[in-house]
Amino acid sequence: MKKQLLLFAFSSLALTSCKDDDVQAYEMDMMKGDWKEVKREVISGKDNKTVLSSSTPQGCDAKNLLFFRTDFYVSYTAYSGTGGADCQVNGKSEGNFTYDADAKILGIKFDKDDTRNYKVDILSSTELRIAQQFGNYDQNGDKITDVTYVTYKR
Results as ranks from 00 to 15, higher is better:
M1Y: 09
K3A: 11
K3C: 06
K3H: 00
L5H: 00
L5E: 02
L6I: 13
F8T: 12
A9I: 14
A9L: 15
A9D: 01
F10C: 13
F10A: 05
S11C: 15
A14I: 14
L15Q: 03
L15K: 10
T16N: 10
S17M: 10
C18D: 07
K19V: 13
K19W: 14
D22L: 14
A25F: 09
Y26S: 13
Y26N: 03
E27V: 04
D29R: 09
D29L: 06
D29Y: 09
K32Y: 11
G33I: 03
G33D: 03
D34I: 09
K36I: 03
K39F: 05
R40K: 09
V42N: 10
V42P: 01
S44M: 07
G45P: 00
K46M: 02
K49W: 06
T50N: 08
T50V: 09
V51Q: 04
V51L: 02
V51E: 11
S55H: 04
T56D: 03
Q58P: 08
G59H: 07
D61V: 07
A62M: 11
A62I: 01
K63V: 02
N64K: 08
N64T: 07
N64R: 09
L66M: 13
L66F: 09
F67E: 12
F68W: 11
F68I: 10
T70D: 14
F72R: 12
Y73D: 13
V74R: 05
S75D: 01
S75L: 00
Y76L: 11
T77R: 05
A78S: 15
S80E: 08
G81H: 03
T82V: 12
G83Y: 06
G84L: 11
A85S: 15
A85H: 08
D86L: 12
D86A: 13
V89R: 05
V89Q: 10
N90M: 11
G91F: 06
G91D: 05
G91P: 05
K92M: 14
S93M: 11
S93Q: 13
E94Y: 02
E94S: 14
E94P: 02
G95R: 06
T98Y: 09
T98W: 09
T98R: 00
Y99N: 02
Y99K: 00
D102F: 09
D102T: 13
I105N: 02
I105K: 06
L106D: 06
L106V: 08
G107L: 04
G107H: 08
I108M: 00
K109G: 07
F110R: 04
K112N: 14
K112W: 10
D113Q: 14
T115E: 15
Y118A: 02
K119P: 11
V120M: 05
V120L: 04
D121I: 13
I122T: 15
S124N: 00
S125K: 12
S125E: 14
T126D: 14
I130T: 04
A131R: 07
Q132A: 15
F134Y: 15
F134S: 11
F134V: 08
F134I: 08
F134M: 03
N136R: 10
N136K: 01
D138Y: 04
D138L: 07
Q139P: 06
Q139C: 10
N140D: 15
K143R: 05
K143V: 00
I144N: 12
I144E: 08
T145C: 09
V147N: 02
V147R: 05
T148N: 04
Y149G: 00
Y149V: 05
V150F: 10
T151H: 06
Y152K: 02
R154P: 03
